[in-house]
Design a binder for these strands. Structure first.
Lengths: 80, 80
DNA sequence: GGGAATATTCCC
DNA sequence: GGGAATATTCCC
């Protein structure tokens, strides 16, 4: 599966829910704790565990960061 | 390290010796059992365990297959 | 946040 | 065996 396919699988994965989820409005992705998410979840779906590489892919596929806090991280897509 | 750096490390790695080595003439690389090499050695150095991906990199860096047998696999570099 | 380099995959 | 697409890294 492509990046978008893996992103969908990840957001569907109950064991990943503590680390990443759709926002309550359903129009963006929230990463609850980027560094834990990177080590615990990323390697299950990608060939790396770097949050920056995940963000690079999000950006390539049209997502951009919307929240300003550093602890949680939210990405919206203009199509929503 | 780059691909060539990892290749050098791998050929230096005693635990990898049963799977991959310099030829006796020192001018090419011999993979003794490609499928075992792929599963046992590749993931220690690269983000995959596919022999074809390793060969793709060898080709990109100027190595080409010289032996015809399928069980062992030899790659020479024109610089040697 | 994204351009470019390199790695990995896919396909001919 | 290599071109092209995609992923990952590196760097600005």
């Amino acid at each position: 599966p492509s990046f978008i396919g893996k992103l969908a699988m990840m957001l569907d994965d109950q064991t990943a829910a503590p680390y990443v989820a759709w926002s309550s409005t359903g129009d963006s992705i929230i990463v609850i704790n980027p560094s834990l998410f990177a080590t615990q979840v990323l390697p299950r779906y990608f060939k790396h565990s770097n949050f920056a590489s995940f963000v690079r892919q999000l950006n390539l596929y049209g997502f951009h960061k919307t929240s300003q806090e550093s602890e949680t991280c939210e990405f919206a897509h203009p199509m929503f």
